[in-house]
């Protein structure tokens, strides 16, 4: 070839830690989303730490004094109708779960809209593909960078939540809610938003229009949300809620005795020489099998959706 090849002057910037190339471009384009995500993680982590620490004192005191009756008393102290804003510890305990679920929805919508769909609709994806970047590499960066932030953020939140569960799950009113929370917390908490990311990207690539992609992606994540925790067909029969309180009392001699059923009657408690109560709610031997099975299935679906997304982008452009 006779075409003269121009060698660009070698870049003199050698700041090794500064993001380069596609990484820089993805971080710069989605800077706002990144800050929103960091704020979300910090706020949710703060809520979890608060629930682990100071917020639990009153409910803990009620449990120690009155046993399970104290837990029920603390739970019914709420003055508001909405459980999300109720001051009762039993309600607040589930708020981080709601936030993490909403975060997953936001991820799926973000992937279908701003991350992929809008770029295809505006033609800015084609702008990136006509730099020295192939569509497959572009998609890889678009998926990998958010995935890293998701794994780090949700990993931290899931770990804090597990810690909160181990510390204070005995302050929860027995029933169906603690059970479904218990089975949904773990590695699957981290993987589910990744599936949302991959599905959103796939839908964005296939639909190429922001609004329909948002709607479809929201619906897809709703399906994941509906099955999350303990409702997948592959998990077999849905296990019944556990209504027993699983609490016991300790008398002044230090011996473990059954709950004398005094409710909140202090005279009755004194009569039975009860020093304090303890409770261990819901340890379950099938937690890890269920959790790991769900994680595996979610990971497989994520891989499938990501592979399909790469197939779509390869079919569309070279």
């Amino acid at each position: 070839m006779s075409t003269a090849t121009l060698t660009a002057p070698a870049p003199s910037r050698r700041a090794s830690l500064r993001p380069r190339g596609l990484l820089w471009s993805v971080l710069r384009l989605h800077r706002t989303a990144l800050w929103v995500w960091l704020a979300f993680v910090v706020a949710t982590a703060g809520l979890l730490l608060w629930l682990t620490g100071p917020a639990a004192h009153d409910a803990q005191h009620q449990l120690e004094t009155f046993g399970y009756a104290g837990v029920l008393k603390a739970a019914s102290s709420s003055a508001t109708f909405l459980s999300f804003t109720s001051g009762a510890y039993n309600d607040l305990f589930y708020d981080p779960d709601t936030l993490i679920t909403l975060g997953g929805f936001a991820v799926a919508l973000f992937a279908a809209g701003p991350l992929i769909g809008r770029e295809l609709e505006n033609g800015t994806a084609q702008l990136a593909w006509t730099q020295s970047v192939s569509p497959a590499r572009w998609l890889a960066a678009k998926l990998a960078v958010p995935a890293c932030f998701l794994v780090l953020g949700n990993g931290l939140l899931a770990a804090l939540y597990r810690h909160l569960w181990n510390t204070h799950s005995n302050l929860l009113v027995a029933g169906i809610d603690p059970r479904s929370l218990y089975f949904s917390l773990g590695p699957a908490t981290v993987v589910a938003p990744l599936l949302g990311l991959a599905l959103g990207a796939l839908i964005g690539l296939a639909v190429r229009r922001t609004l329909p992609a948002l709607a479809l992606s929201g619906f897809a994540y709703f399906l994941i949300y509906a099955f999350r925790g303990n409702h997948w067909p592959f998990q077999g029969r849905y296990t019944a809620p556990d209504p027993t309180s699983r609490s016991w009392a300790i008398d002044t001699s230090g011996a473990t005795v059954p709950d004398p059923n005094c409710y909140t009657d202090r005279g009755c408690l004194a009569e039975h020489h009860i020093a304090r109560f303890a409770r261990e709610y819901l340890p379950s031997p099938d937690y890890w099998p269920r959790q790991l099975l769900e994680t595996g299935v979610l990971l497989a679906l994520t891989a499938l959706a990501a592979t399909a997304a790469f197939a779509v982008v390869r079919r569309r452009a070279t």
Binding site: R20, G21, L22, W24, R28, T32, G123, T124, L127, A128
Partner: peptide
């Protein structure tokens, strides 16, 4: 097509990053 949220300087920076 150009990214509307970028400045001109960032747009050119993107050109540098994506065409090293």
């Amino acid at each position: 097509p150009l990214y509307p949220q970028l400045t001109i300087a960032d747009t050119l920076r993107m050109g540098a990053e994506l065409n090293p």
